[in-house]
Protein backbone atom coordinates (compact mmCIF):
# COMPACT_ATOMS: atom_id res chain seq x y z
CA UNK A 1 0.00 0.00 0.00
CA UNK A 2 1.41 3.37 -1.00
CA UNK A 3 1.76 6.29 1.39
CA UNK A 4 -1.00 8.08 -0.49
CA UNK A 5 -3.38 5.15 -0.18
CA UNK A 6 -2.56 4.60 3.48
CA UNK A 7 -3.76 8.11 4.29
CA UNK A 8 -6.86 7.88 2.18
CA UNK A 9 -10.27 7.98 3.70
CA UNK A 10 -13.66 8.83 2.30
CA UNK A 11 -16.75 10.52 3.68
CA UNK A 12 -19.29 10.76 0.91
CA UNK A 13 -17.86 12.92 -1.87
CA UNK A 14 -15.02 14.35 0.20
CA UNK A 15 -11.75 12.50 0.31
CA UNK A 16 -8.36 13.46 1.67
CA UNK A 17 -5.19 11.66 0.67
CA UNK A 18 -1.57 11.92 1.71
CA UNK A 19 -0.90 13.75 -1.54
CA UNK A 20 -3.59 16.31 -0.66
CA UNK A 21 -1.88 16.93 2.69
CA UNK A 22 1.48 17.29 0.93
CA UNK A 23 -0.08 19.82 -1.44
CA UNK A 24 -1.61 21.68 1.53
CA UNK A 25 1.88 22.05 3.00
CA UNK A 26 3.20 23.38 -0.33
CA UNK A 27 0.38 25.94 -0.38
CA UNK A 28 1.01 26.83 3.29
CA UNK A 29 4.73 27.27 2.62
CA UNK A 30 4.04 29.61 -0.28
CA UNK A 31 1.47 31.55 1.73
CA UNK A 32 4.01 31.97 4.54
CA UNK A 33 6.54 33.21 2.00
CA UNK A 34 3.96 35.73 0.79
CA UNK A 35 3.43 36.97 4.35
CA UNK A 36 7.13 37.15 5.11
CA UNK A 37 7.92 39.06 1.91
CA UNK A 38 5.02 41.46 2.32
CA UNK A 39 4.56 44.62 4.35
CA UNK A 40 1.72 43.29 6.48
CA UNK A 41 4.03 41.17 8.59
CA UNK A 42 6.13 44.25 9.37
CA UNK A 43 3.01 46.13 10.39
CA UNK A 44 1.84 43.20 12.50
CA UNK A 45 5.19 42.83 14.29
CA UNK A 46 5.39 46.58 14.76
CA UNK A 47 1.94 46.76 16.38
CA UNK A 48 2.66 43.76 18.62
CA UNK A 49 5.99 45.34 19.60
CA UNK A 50 4.22 48.63 20.32
CA UNK A 51 1.95 46.89 22.82
CA UNK A 52 5.00 45.35 24.47
CA UNK A 53 6.83 48.65 24.64
CA UNK A 54 3.80 50.32 26.25
CA UNK A 55 3.32 47.39 28.65
CA UNK A 56 6.97 47.54 29.70
CA UNK A 57 7.46 51.31 29.63
CA UNK A 58 4.37 52.32 31.60
CA UNK A 59 5.29 50.41 34.78
CA UNK A 60 8.93 51.47 34.40
CA UNK A 61 8.08 55.17 34.29
CA UNK A 62 5.17 55.10 36.72
CA UNK A 63 6.29 52.41 39.18
CA UNK A 64 4.57 54.08 42.11
CA UNK A 65 1.21 53.65 40.46
CA UNK A 66 1.91 50.22 38.94
CA UNK A 67 4.16 48.74 41.63
CA UNK A 68 1.38 47.46 43.86
CA UNK A 69 -0.66 46.22 40.93
CA UNK A 70 2.21 44.32 39.22
CA UNK A 71 3.48 42.68 42.38
CA UNK A 72 3.23 39.02 41.29
CA UNK A 73 4.28 37.03 38.18
CA UNK A 74 0.55 36.33 37.60
CA UNK A 75 -0.26 40.03 37.59
CA UNK A 76 2.55 40.83 35.15
CA UNK A 77 1.53 38.09 32.74
CA UNK A 78 -2.15 39.10 33.05
CA UNK A 79 -1.13 42.70 32.27
CA UNK A 80 0.56 41.57 29.06
CA UNK A 81 -2.03 38.91 28.12
CA UNK A 82 -4.84 41.48 28.20
CA UNK A 83 -3.52 42.69 24.82
CA UNK A 84 -3.27 39.26 23.23
CA UNK A 85 -6.86 39.08 22.00
CA UNK A 86 -6.46 42.38 20.14
CA UNK A 87 -3.16 41.31 18.60
CA UNK A 88 -4.80 38.06 17.47
CA UNK A 89 -7.57 40.12 15.89
CA UNK A 90 -4.96 42.16 14.02
CA UNK A 91 -3.38 38.92 12.76
CA UNK A 92 -6.76 37.64 11.57
CA UNK A 93 -7.52 40.92 9.83
CA UNK A 94 -4.12 41.24 8.17
CA UNK A 95 -3.71 37.64 7.02
CA UNK A 96 -6.74 35.35 7.26
CA UNK A 97 -9.28 37.86 6.00
CA UNK A 98 -7.33 38.23 2.74
CA UNK A 99 -6.13 34.69 2.18
CA UNK A 100 -8.97 33.32 0.00
CA UNK A 101 -10.41 36.47 -1.52
CA UNK A 102 -6.99 37.63 -2.72
CA UNK A 103 -6.77 34.62 -5.07
CA UNK A 104 -9.91 35.85 -6.86
CA UNK A 105 -9.19 39.54 -6.55
CA UNK A 106 -5.66 39.21 -7.91
CA UNK A 107 -6.67 36.56 -10.49
CA UNK A 108 -4.00 34.13 -9.27
CA UNK A 109 -6.74 31.51 -8.98
CA UNK A 110 -6.41 31.04 -12.74
CA UNK A 111 -2.95 29.69 -12.06
CA UNK A 112 -3.57 27.70 -8.90
CA UNK A 113 -7.05 26.23 -9.35
CA UNK A 114 -6.36 24.85 -12.83
CA UNK A 115 -3.67 22.56 -11.39
CA UNK A 116 -4.43 19.01 -10.21
CA UNK A 117 -5.01 20.11 -6.63
CA UNK A 118 -8.21 19.89 -4.61
CA UNK A 119 -9.77 23.11 -3.40
CA UNK A 120 -9.85 21.54 0.05
CA UNK A 121 -6.04 21.22 -0.02
CA UNK A 122 -5.75 24.88 -0.99
CA UNK A 123 -8.17 25.89 1.77
CA UNK A 124 -6.36 23.86 4.43
CA UNK A 125 -2.94 25.15 3.37
CA UNK A 126 -4.01 28.76 3.44
CA UNK A 127 -5.73 28.47 6.81
CA UNK A 128 -2.70 26.71 8.22
CA UNK A 129 -0.36 29.50 7.09
CA UNK A 130 -2.60 32.20 8.60
CA UNK A 131 -2.81 30.28 11.85
CA UNK A 132 0.94 29.67 12.09
CA UNK A 133 2.02 33.23 11.27
CA UNK A 134 -0.28 34.68 13.95
CA UNK A 135 0.77 32.02 16.44
CA UNK A 136 4.48 32.74 15.90
CA UNK A 137 4.01 36.42 16.68
CA UNK A 138 1.87 35.61 19.72
CA UNK A 139 4.49 33.14 20.99
CA UNK A 140 7.16 35.82 20.59
CA UNK A 141 4.88 38.22 22.51
CA UNK A 142 4.54 35.71 25.35
CA UNK A 143 8.31 35.14 25.26
CA UNK A 144 9.09 38.83 25.80
CA UNK A 145 6.32 39.05 28.43
CA UNK A 146 7.86 36.10 30.29
CA UNK A 147 11.29 37.78 30.23
CA UNK A 148 9.66 40.93 31.65
CA UNK A 149 8.10 38.85 34.43
CA UNK A 150 11.49 37.25 35.15
CA UNK A 151 13.18 40.62 35.35
CA UNK A 152 10.57 42.19 37.63
CA UNK A 153 9.61 39.25 39.86
CA UNK A 154 12.28 36.62 39.16
CA UNK A 155 9.68 34.05 38.09
CA UNK A 156 7.18 33.15 35.40
CA UNK A 157 3.88 31.58 36.38
CA UNK A 158 3.01 28.18 34.94
CA UNK A 159 -0.42 29.60 34.07
CA UNK A 160 1.37 31.20 31.14
CA UNK A 161 1.17 27.87 29.31
CA UNK A 162 -2.58 27.66 29.91
CA UNK A 163 -2.94 31.21 28.62
CA UNK A 164 -0.92 30.25 25.51
CA UNK A 165 -3.29 27.31 24.99
CA UNK A 166 -6.28 29.64 25.26
CA UNK A 167 -4.58 32.02 22.81
CA UNK A 168 -4.10 29.17 20.35
CA UNK A 169 -7.82 28.41 20.55
CA UNK A 170 -8.61 32.12 20.13
CA UNK A 171 -6.36 32.32 17.06
CA UNK A 172 -8.28 29.35 15.64
CA UNK A 173 -11.62 31.08 16.34
CA UNK A 174 -10.68 34.42 14.82
CA UNK A 175 -8.83 32.90 11.87
CA UNK A 176 -11.86 30.71 11.17
CA UNK A 177 -14.16 33.73 11.21
CA UNK A 178 -11.78 35.79 9.06
CA UNK A 179 -11.39 32.97 6.51
CA UNK A 180 -15.19 32.72 6.35
CA UNK A 181 -15.44 36.44 5.52
CA UNK A 182 -12.66 35.95 3.01
CA UNK A 183 -14.70 33.20 1.30
CA UNK A 184 -17.84 35.29 0.97
CA UNK A 185 -16.29 38.65 0.06
CA UNK A 186 -15.49 40.03 -3.37
CA UNK A 187 -12.78 42.30 -2.04
CA UNK A 188 -10.08 41.82 0.57
CA UNK A 189 -10.71 45.23 2.09
CA UNK A 190 -14.38 44.37 2.70
CA UNK A 191 -13.40 41.06 4.27
CA UNK A 192 -10.86 42.80 6.53
CA UNK A 193 -13.37 45.44 7.65
CA UNK A 194 -16.04 42.81 8.33
CA UNK A 195 -13.57 40.78 10.39
CA UNK A 196 -12.38 43.77 12.38
CA UNK A 197 -15.73 45.35 13.20
CA UNK A 198 -17.83 42.22 13.57
CA UNK A 199 -15.31 40.56 15.87
CA UNK A 200 -14.44 43.70 17.81
CA UNK A 201 -17.85 45.30 18.16
CA UNK A 202 -20.69 42.82 17.72
CA UNK A 203 -19.80 40.50 20.64
CA UNK A 204 -19.21 43.54 22.86
CA UNK A 205 -22.59 45.02 21.96
CA UNK A 206 -24.35 41.68 22.49
CA UNK A 207 -22.69 41.12 25.86
CA UNK A 208 -23.58 44.65 27.03
CA UNK A 209 -27.21 44.12 25.98
CA UNK A 210 -27.33 40.75 27.73
CA UNK A 211 -25.79 42.16 30.89
CA UNK A 212 -28.35 44.95 30.94
CA UNK A 213 -31.26 42.57 30.27
CA UNK A 214 -30.06 39.92 32.69
CA UNK A 215 -27.32 41.22 35.00
CA UNK A 216 -25.02 38.66 36.57
CA UNK A 217 -25.62 36.01 33.92
CA UNK A 218 -22.87 33.66 32.75
CA UNK A 219 -22.34 34.41 29.08
CA UNK A 220 -19.50 31.97 28.55
CA UNK A 221 -20.61 31.24 24.99
CA UNK A 222 -19.84 34.76 23.76
CA UNK A 223 -16.62 35.09 21.77
CA UNK A 224 -15.29 38.03 23.79
CA UNK A 225 -16.06 36.36 27.12
CA UNK A 226 -14.38 33.09 26.05
CA UNK A 227 -11.46 35.05 24.60
CA UNK A 228 -11.17 37.08 27.79
CA UNK A 229 -10.02 33.94 29.59
CA UNK A 230 -6.59 34.42 27.95
CA UNK A 231 -5.84 37.05 30.61
CA UNK A 232 -8.43 36.24 33.30
CA UNK A 233 -6.83 32.80 33.72
CA UNK A 234 -4.06 34.53 35.73
CA UNK A 235 -6.37 36.17 38.27
CA UNK A 236 -9.51 34.05 38.55
CA UNK A 237 -10.85 30.56 38.12
CA UNK A 238 -11.72 29.85 34.51
CA UNK A 239 -13.56 26.81 33.19
CA UNK A 240 -10.83 26.01 30.73
CA UNK A 241 -12.54 23.17 28.87
CA UNK A 242 -15.74 25.18 28.43
CA UNK A 243 -13.79 28.18 27.09
CA UNK A 244 -11.71 25.96 24.78
CA UNK A 245 -14.77 24.23 23.33
CA UNK A 246 -16.52 27.59 22.87
CA UNK A 247 -13.53 29.05 21.03
CA UNK A 248 -13.17 25.88 18.96
CA UNK A 249 -16.81 26.11 17.86
CA UNK A 250 -16.50 29.82 17.12
CA UNK A 251 -13.71 28.89 14.69
CA UNK A 252 -14.91 25.55 13.37
CA UNK A 253 -18.45 26.52 12.37
CA UNK A 254 -17.50 29.50 10.15
CA UNK A 255 -14.51 27.56 8.88
CA UNK A 256 -16.68 24.69 7.64
CA UNK A 257 -19.22 27.12 6.18
CA UNK A 258 -16.42 29.03 4.47
CA UNK A 259 -14.98 25.80 3.09
CA UNK A 260 -18.36 24.78 1.64
CA UNK A 261 -18.76 28.20 0.02
CA UNK A 262 -15.21 28.08 -1.31
CA UNK A 263 -15.80 24.66 -2.92
CA UNK A 264 -18.67 26.10 -4.98
CA UNK A 265 -17.17 29.52 -5.54
CA UNK A 266 -16.40 30.59 -9.07
CA UNK A 267 -14.65 33.81 -10.02
Amino acid sequence: MSLTESFKFRRGKVSITGDDLRQSLVIAKNEMRKFLRGRKILLFILLAALFLVIDIALPAFYWEEFGTFLSTPEAIMSWHASNVSFIVLLGAVLFASFTIVSEFEERTYLLLFTRPVKKTAIFVGKFLACYVITLLVILAFYGVSAVHSLVLEGAVTSKTFTSIGMSMAYIFALSGLAVFFSCISKKGSISALMTFFLVLMVPQIISVILMVVQPGGDYWYLLNIAGGSISSIFSSTVQISKALITLFLWGAVPLVLGWLIFLRREA
Binding site: N30, R33, K34, R37, G38, E106, R107, T108, L110, L111, T114, R115, P116, V117, K118
Partner: peptide, 21 residues
Protein backbone atom coordinates in the same frame (compact mmCIF):
# COMPACT_ATOMS: atom_id res chain seq x y z
CA UNK B 1 -10.98 17.05 -11.38
CA UNK B 2 -7.67 16.33 -9.65
CA UNK B 3 -7.11 13.06 -11.51
CA UNK B 4 -8.39 14.51 -14.79
CA UNK B 5 -6.01 17.49 -14.64
CA UNK B 6 -2.88 15.39 -14.08
CA UNK B 7 -0.72 15.79 -17.18
CA UNK B 8 -2.65 18.86 -18.30
CA UNK B 9 -1.09 22.32 -18.63
CA UNK B 10 -3.36 25.34 -18.82
CA UNK B 11 -3.26 29.03 -19.66
CA UNK B 12 -6.62 30.64 -18.98
CA UNK B 13 -6.82 34.14 -20.45
CA UNK B 14 -4.10 36.27 -18.85
CA UNK B 15 -3.58 34.88 -15.37
CA UNK B 16 -1.84 36.94 -12.75
CA UNK B 17 1.12 35.60 -10.83
CA UNK B 18 2.30 35.85 -7.27
CA UNK B 19 4.21 39.08 -7.80
CA UNK B 20 6.60 38.40 -4.93
CA UNK B 21 7.96 35.34 -6.74
Amino acid sequence: PKAALIGVGTVVETPEFYTYL
